[in-house]
């Protein structure tokens, strides 16, 4: 076996051990922590899935979107409205939410990927803002800012003959963990695949990738669609697990937050978004117990990161110590 193949094998082992370790740690955590952290960690894991999805586009493809609340919102409202208005049941609603995000991301990608850089940022922001306003405009169905809750039979998911009680904290925790783990594993597989290699190439130098024979538009569309779909999956899961659908989750704040989580944890790393979401969630949690101006923390951390530490935590670590981190 060649030197390169040996090294690749060793790296794969390290990746499996480290990432599997984090997932195992999250699994073990549920037996140790109290009820409050049990619930909030469930929330963090769903939001971290959102961040992992965002990172595929931002971290690996180099497209900075300021409108991913649109996809999270599509999943959230897709699932929420399907469940309450069309009576498709929890599992059906989950699928509808994912499909909504997938279709939206694909269709929108055809339009917005004509732009790049600053224009891309503004265009995504504008579309997300339009989406948020649409939620408010159709207040009859969405109940606007106030939002709506999922009740009764919708707290029960039926899958392959099994029945899951979504109101049960333990079920909820492990479903969220399963979702996050699946996305992390999928993300590792993507990054190590030929597609992942091209996405990184586009991030590093799109013109060169084009001249190496890649249809960069198609790759970017794939990245955006996948990213949007994962974010919508997180949104749908959020709606079904926490039984609440509200316009806040489609607002600009939820476009900025995944950016912040990814920047904090480490742009272009698989676990970075998870670490970033975890830290930021509890930072905001602590801040909001002191002041109603807790978004100040968001602003300050964002500023520090963009000016002084654009690599984030794991990004800096990879630069200095562990080069094999995907």
């Amino acid at each position: 076996m060649s030197v390169r193949a040996t090294a690749a094998r060793r790296n794969l082992h390290r990746i499996i051990v480290s990432h599997g370790g984090v997932i195992a740690l999250l699994f073990a955590a549920q037996f140790v922590i109290g009820a409050y952290y049990h619930l909030s960690l469930t929330r963090v894991m769903v939001l971290a899935t959102f961040a992992v999805g965002y990172n595929i586009l931002f971290g690996y493809t180099g497209l900075l979107s300021l409108g991913h609340a649109l996809f999270f919102g599509a999943g959230l409202y897709g699932a929420g409205i399907a469940a309450t208005q069309f009576g498709v049941g929890a599992s059906g609603a989950f699928v509808v939410g994912i499909a909504a995000g997938l279709l939206l991301a694909f269709a929108l990608g055809l339009i917005i990927l004509r732009t790049a850089g600053v224009a891309f940022m503004i265009v995504t922001m504008m579309f997300a803002q339009a989406g948020y306003l649409l939620v408010l405009y159709f207040g009859t169905y969405t109940r606007g800012d106030e939002g709506f809750v999922l009740k009764g039979a919708l707290r029960e998911a039926h899958l392959f003959g099994f029945s899951l009680n979504l109101a049960d904290p333990v079920t909820r925790y492990n479903l969220a963990l399963f979702l996050l783990a699946a996305c992390v594993v999928g993300c590792i597989a993507l990054v190590r695949s030929p597609v992942g290699r091209v996405l990184v190439a586009i991030r590093e130098n799109e013109e060169r990738s084009r001249m190496l024979g890649y249809n960069t538009f198609r790759y970017k569309l794939f990245a955006l669609t996948l990213s949007g779909t994962i974010c919508a999956t997180a949104g749908a899961a959020y709606a079904l697990l926490f039984a609440y659908v509200g316009a806040t989750f489609a607002s600009i704040e939820y476009s900025i937050l995944p950016l912040l989580w990814v920047l904090l944890g480490g742009i272009g790393t698989v676990l970075g978004p998870v670490v970033g979401t975890l830290l930021m969630f509890y930072l905001v949690d602590v801040a909001s117990s002191y002041t109603s101006a807790y978004m100040l923390v968001v602003g300050i951390v964002l500023l520090i990161l963009i000016v002084w530490a654009p690599g984030g935590l794991l990004g800096t670590l990879r630069e200095r110590k562990i080069g094999w981190l995907p």
Partner: peptide, 30 residues
């Protein structure tokens, strides 16, 4: 106009991958 942040191997691999994909239609595996 190389990929400055990637290794020399990765730079060439990107070109090779394109040539390989042309020969065998491989999007996800190579």
């Amino acid at each position: 106009s190389i990929f400055g942040n990637l290794t020399v191997y990765e730079n060439v691999a990107l070109a090779v991958q394109n040539a390989l994909q042309r020969d065998h239609d491989a999007f996800f595996r190579i």
